[in-house]
Design a protein around this nucleic acid. Structure first.
Length: 790
DNA sequence: TTAGGGTTAG
């Protein structure tokens, strides 16, 4: 027998033999051996065999091996292209996937088919921007494949992934043919976008549609909806439907039902379902652990956690997060710490996912030092950990830490996502860091985050809070989709700047657009009315909130009303309002009244308000200072001094006043009487010169005057200069004549500084924008936008 | 002239 004969009779030489072998092989070394046999038997250019091998390599994550194989084929056909396009995207290289798709279109004569489009569209949904996906949609239309079931389904999925719910629904409605997968895609897409009611609606439509059959995916896709809505009845109906369809032994279905029952408080039903699973996997364990935790059965969660560890399975971040009752108000810190200890002991703490989870949990508990410790110790810092740290810092007002950590992150290889950016913007807004905020804005454009509603809302908020209300409005008008938070940010921005009319108009425009206002909306409108003296409008909106929109007012709303009456000088009405409130007045209401007494110099009422305040909130130093200042105004110095004694005796913490000014990219911080600035001499000389001119113009320093903020030590007071004056003087030195000066103060501006700034704005012909703890003051031509009313 | 490639999910 000759050599050819040996080959042809050799059992491994048939194509089908290789294909069968490839189907069954699950290990990479099998594939390598088969590949060697394929070459040895002369099948290395047999395209179907190579395609199958490439496919298996992709499945096992060997994308580079697969790519080399692909490149070795002289004339790959559309099948092989499809396998590699899919392989890239399922191995996390969506960019390569799209590049290959483009290569296919431009450099070959092959025509992409429905497979090609569905893979490419799926790859494009991994991108941050929907642009590629939109292009692909256009190309699919041109190639007449848009309404193909597979292409259409992947397009529907694409739009859901980019939260274009309306587009997705439109696409779905246009589809002539609908199969189980398409329905499932819509149900899960609605769930992903928190459209729970709608997803239940579509699920019911699907049941009614007799041409399609429900499968386990349909059931698992819809279950989060009744779980989130806590609609036990719906959950139970889905359960009985699953029983009827014989899907109740499907592990995903059982896990979904478990979550639904435990979120509806039916923890026993969840537990018995868990018992039905022969060998629960990690996700089932996690669902049950967090179910127990949510229902307060901590012992059971810990028991399951141990069981999971003993079974030798890996633990992931969901396990740890599910174990810790993050959102419960009490007892969580101790438990977290003991779980941390447990993680150390069982040496799973080095697991990056666990590290991340612990960082996240501590950060959510505002235990930033502990969070930071774990964060610093972890070797692999993933995006989620960075976000947990940065947002944690930003949320509790540690803005500098948030920003400096963000800068460290920029230096590392981890790229920020919209969550990061939103947190950083919140820090900028709190800090008034306009130049950093502008830099982040550039980054948003570069990274194409400018379609993200959270990012854009945070950006609007940042501009408004950093004084650029016009820029905020510009961005607001450019946004195609706005949610209630976006509108609220803009309305409260106007309120901060004292632009009551704009806030009022925007609120009405919002209603016309059919946006449902929230409690925060009313708070923002009331604030705006209060700061602009629009009492009639404020009262109208307060009543409309209750009657037309069905909101029960909360403490903040009442405080706003008291503030509004008080500011406008209707102190008795404010008191009357407090006394007639249906709930017990808290510190916020009395505090608002005390503040109004300050402005209108009503000592009697101030006394009443402060008595209530001291009873309710004895540790708050602000009220003592306010009262002491009122006595000073009334020239009741002994009383004022005695109040200050109380502060000293209680050794309540004083917040030192400080003012920030940004020149270029650098921010300069001044405290009261500060001489630490390198240009200190020049600053004081400038101030002296200014005071001279101001006095000529009629300025009288308010030496006996009340300070809204914390007073300095009595004797020093005469010589000390408040930080805002220093910052303004420095601003005058460091900027071009005529340039705007923007400063930020951490406390409320005091009366003397307010008067002085009015004079300075007139003398120097500058616009001076001051952001204090409460609002913005725009000083121009000797007048302040607050109407001396703050 | 066959083979080789699907989108959705806890």
């Amino acid at each position: 027998m000759n050599f050819r004969g040996i080959i042809s009779s050799f059992p491994t030489s048939g194509r089908n033999f290789f294909l069968d072998l490839l189907k069954e092989s699950t290990k990479i070394h099998h594939l390598q051996q088969i590949h060697a046999q394929i070459i040895a038997n002369g099948y290395k250019n047999d395209i179907s065999t190579v395609t199958k091998l490439t496919h298996r390599l992709c499945d096992l994550g060997r994308i580079n091996y697969a790519r080399d194989l692909f490149l070795s084929i002289r004339n790959p056909d559309i099948f092989l292209f499809n396998v590699v396009i899919k392989g890239y995207s399922s191995n996390g290289s969506s960019f390569s996937s799209i590049s290959l798709f483009n290569h296919l279109r431009r450099m070959t004569t092959l025509r992409p088919d429905n497979y090609t489009y569905s893979f490419a569209v799926a790859a494009s949904s991994d991108f941050r921007s929907e642009k590629v996906g939109n292009l692909l949609h256009g190309q699919a239309v041109v190639d007449g494949l848009e309404s193909d079931l597979f292409v259409g389904s992947s397009l529907v999925d694409l739009y859901f992934k980019f939260s274009k719910v309306d587009l997705a629904k439109k696409m779905f409605n246009r589809m002539l043919e609908r199969d189980t997968v398409l329905w499932n895609t819509v149900i899960s897409g609605l769930v992903k976008n928190c459209r729970y009611e709608e997803s239940i609606g579509v699920f019911i439509d699907m049941i009614a549609d007799e041409s399609t059959r429900l499968d386990s995916t349909s059931v698992t896709a819809v279950l989060p909806a009744p779980a989130e809505l806590q609609m036990l009845g719906v959950g139970m109906s889905v359960h009985s439907l699953a029983l009827k369809l014989g899907l109740d032994d499907h592990e995903y279905v059982i896990t979904g039902l478990m979550s639904t029952y435990s979120k509806c408080g039916e923890i026993e039903s969840a537990g018995s379902l868990f018992g039905q699973i022969a060998r629960p996997d990690l996700i089932s364990y996690n669902a049950m652990i967090s179910g127990y935790t949510c229902n307060g059965e901590t012992e059971n969660s810990v028991r399951l956690f141990r069981e999971l560890l003993e079974s030798g399975d890996r633990v992931n971040s969901s396990t740890i997060v599910g174990l810790i009752p993050v959102f419960q108000p009490f007892g969580h810190l101790d438990l977290t710490s003991s779980i941390y200890g447990f993680c150390i002991k069982s040496s799973i703490v080095s697991n990056p996912a666990v590290m991340t989870a612990l960082t996240t949990v501590y950060s959510r508990l505002s235990e930033m030092e502990l969070a930071r410790k774990i964060f610093d110790e972890s070797n692999e810092k993933c995006l989620e950990s960075w976000n947990a740290m940065i947002s944690g810092y930003a949320q509790i007002g540690l803005t500098k830490e948030a920003i400096s950590l963000f800068k460290v992150m920029q230096e590392s290889e981890v790229r920020p996502n919209p969550v990061t950016i939103t947190s950083v913007l919140s820090a900028c807004a709190q800090l008034g860091a306009l130049s950093l905020g502008k830099w982040v804005h550039e980054l948003i454009k570069r990274e194409e985050f400018d379609a993200n509603i959270f990012v854009m809302t945070a950006l609007i908020d940042m501009y408004a809070k950093c004084g650029s209300i016009a820029e905020a409005r510009h961005l607001f008008d450019l946004m195609p989709d706005k949610n209630v938070v976006t509108w609220n940010s803009m309305i409260s921005g106007y309120g901060l700047h004292g632009h009551g009319n704009e806030a009022w108009n925007l609120y009405n425009q919002m209603l016309q657009c059919g946006i449902f206002p929230s409690r925060v909306t009313f708070l923002s409108v009331l604030h705006a009315c209060s700061h602009a003296g629009m009492v009639a409008e404020g009262e109208r909106v307060f009543h409309s909130m209750i009657i037309d929109h069905g909101f029960e007012p909360i403490a903040e709303h009442y405080a706003c009303m008291v503030d509004m009456f008080g500011r406008s000088g209707q102190l008795r009405r404010a008191l009357d309002f407090i006394e007639r409130m249906p709930t017990e007045p808290g510190p916020a209401m009395w505090g608002a009244l005390l503040g109004a007494c300050m402005i209108h110099k009503d000592t009697t009422l101030a006394h009443l308000a402060s008595e209530r305040l001291f009873a309710l909130d004895p540790e708050n130093v602000g009220y003592y200072v306010l009262l002491s200042n009122i006595y000073s105004v009334d020239k009741k110095f002994p009383l004022a001094a005695s109040i200050r004694q109380v502060v000293k005796r209680k050794s309540l913490v004083k917040i030192p006043g400080c003012t920030l000014i940004e020149i270029g990219e650098v921010s300069h911080m001044f405290t009261s009487g500060d001489r630490s600035h390198p240009q200190s001499d020049k600053i004081y000389m400038m101030l002296e010169k200014l005071v001279g001119k101001m006095k000529e113009a009629g300025y009288k320093p308010e030496t006996t005057a009340a300070l809204h903020d914390i007073e300095d030590e009595e004797k020093e007071m005469m010589f000390e200069v408040h930080s805002e004056k220093l910052a303004i003087a420095f601003g005058l030195i460091a900027t071009e004549p005529g340039a705007d000066i923007r400063i930020i103060k951490n406390l409320r501006v005091c009366l003397d500084c307010h008067t002085a700034t009015k004079f300075i704005s007139k003398i120097t012909e500058r616009l001076i924008v001051v952001r204090d703890a409460n609002r913005f003051h725009h000083f121009k031509d000797g007048v302040c936008s607050c109407g001396d009313y703050w």
